[in-house]
Simulated scan of single mutants.
Amino acid sequence: MRNKKITVRETFSGEEIALLDVFWLFYNRKIYLAVSIVLFLIIGVIVANTTPVEYEATVEILSEGGDDGSAGGLSDLIGLAGVRTNRKSSGGGSGGLESDMYPQILRSSPFLLELMDEEFQFGRKRKLSLYEFFLQPEPKHFFATAADYLKDFPLNVKILLGFAKKKKLVTPKHVRKKMENYPSILILSGEEKKVMAQLKRRISIASDGRIISLTVKMPDRNVAAQLNTIVIEKLITYLSNYKTEKLRLDLEFIGERKAEAEIEYLKAQKELATFRDSNQGRMTKLAESREQYLTFEYNLAFNIYNTLSNQLEQAQIQVKKETPLFSEFEPVSIPGSPSEPKASKIITLYTGVGAVFGFLTLVLMLLVSYFKELAISKTN
């Protein structure tokens, strides 16, 4: 049996290094490796149990796009008004948003600015908007909190002794500002950018064919489900408006022309009726000519009004046809268990770090012992 008390210098000074001797060197110092593993294991358990929890709420919806095709006779009607157009389709059948654009919509500044004004009940606290909530100090695990406390300890002592005053947490009101001469340019404050960064990190969307999956992560399970519902509703509204925007513009155009045609039709009807009432009985050739002209004006106004009424109805039908439909494939539910922290992964990670740290410590100790023994042998 090999000598378990063999020195480091004896192990590494020979022509060949015996692996068994190296094993015994580490084995005799195994207590250091065990202490390192146990210490980091305890740290991992503390971090896993003090890290703020996060809940994920997910909804899956099935998208059913509108029919492809043109907007019927809208181009002919627009042509009556003297407007020339080369487009083949008014709607978004083939011109709708691609699914890879959904994340860009959710990350856009106007969308996030509108979203951060939504208010929620966070636990027993008063209702807070997302803007107010994310400007509060973020909860941290035990060691991060302890580090912050030690960093602020001198200031806290000064505050306790009256040499300094505690800073009050001021939450500025969220106001969307724009440049005076350029209304389309937004001016974002530092607080707004911070909140937007939080929302971008917590909202994610993925699309697999016609199924859209939206996930929202929040520290409160109820807020996670509520925010998920609000985000998907806003997204559906945005997609519907985008897909039918051109058709709605055509619908508005036809509606305005119909209103004008109705005024002209009623005017022509009144003029014809007034003329006939004032020229009852035998009429002169001039009066007959005037009646024929008024009748022609009336018939023309009526035909235009009737055509526009039909086209308006067709345009309304087309808007409904082109409006995309979304149905819940997997409805959102209040998450039962937190998605973060993942205790098993954290503990495993810290245990592995402890093992590596312990092993490196043993290697360092062996190197120190080797050079120390080497120095002693030279002095002797």
Rank of each mutant, 00 (worst) to 15 (best):
K4P: 02
I6Q: 09
E10F: 06
S13C: 15
G14P: 08
L19Y: 10
V22E: 09
Y32K: 06
V35D: 07
I43D: 01
G44F: 10
N49W: 12
T50Q: 01
E56V: 14
A57G: 05
V59Y: 07
V59H: 03
E60P: 05
E60Q: 13
E60N: 11
S63T: 03
E64R: 04
D67L: 00
D67A: 02
D68G: 00
G72D: 00
G73Y: 00
L74Q: 09
S75C: 05
D76C: 07
A81S: 06
R84A: 09
N86G: 01
K88P: 00
G91L: 00
G92T: 02
G95M: 07
G95S: 14
G96R: 03
G96P: 01
Y102V: 12
L112V: 04
E114D: 15
L115V: 14
D117H: 13
D117I: 15
F120L: 07
Q121M: 09
L128Y: 03
Y131G: 04
F134L: 05
F134N: 03
E138Y: 04
K140R: 05
F143T: 14
F143G: 14
A146T: 13
A146K: 14
A147R: 02
Y149E: 02
F153Y: 02
P154N: 01
L155Q: 11
K158A: 06
I159S: 11
L160E: 10
G162I: 02
A164L: 15
K165L: 07
K166L: 08
K168G: 06
L169A: 07
R176P: 03
K177W: 06
K177M: 15
M179H: 06
N181D: 09
L186H: 04
V195W: 03
K200Q: 12
K200L: 10
K200Y: 09
I203A: 08
D208A: 13
I211S: 08
I211T: 13
I211G: 06
I212V: 09
L214I: 08
M218V: 05
D220K: 09
R221H: 05
A224Y: 05
L235E: 01
I236S: 05
L239K: 01
L247N: 04
R257K: 04
K258H: 01
A259I: 03
E260K: 07
E262P: 05
E262F: 09
I263M: 03
Y265P: 04
K267S: 14
A268Q: 06
K270M: 12
L272C: 01
R276S: 02
D277L: 08
D277S: 10
D277T: 08
S278R: 08
Q280F: 14
T284L: 14
K285M: 13
A287Q: 15
A287D: 11
E291S: 12
T295M: 11
T295H: 14
Y298V: 15
N299Q: 08
F302I: 08
N306C: 07
S309Q: 06
I317Q: 01
K321D: 00
S327T: 11
E328W: 15
F329D: 11
G336C: 10
P338R: 09
E340C: 00
P341D: 07
P341A: 11
T348W: 15
Y350R: 02
T361L: 10
V363P: 02
V368L: 11
V368A: 04
S369P: 05
L374E: 13
A375P: 02
A375G: 13
I376Y: 08
S377P: 10
T379V: 13
T379S: 12
T379P: 04
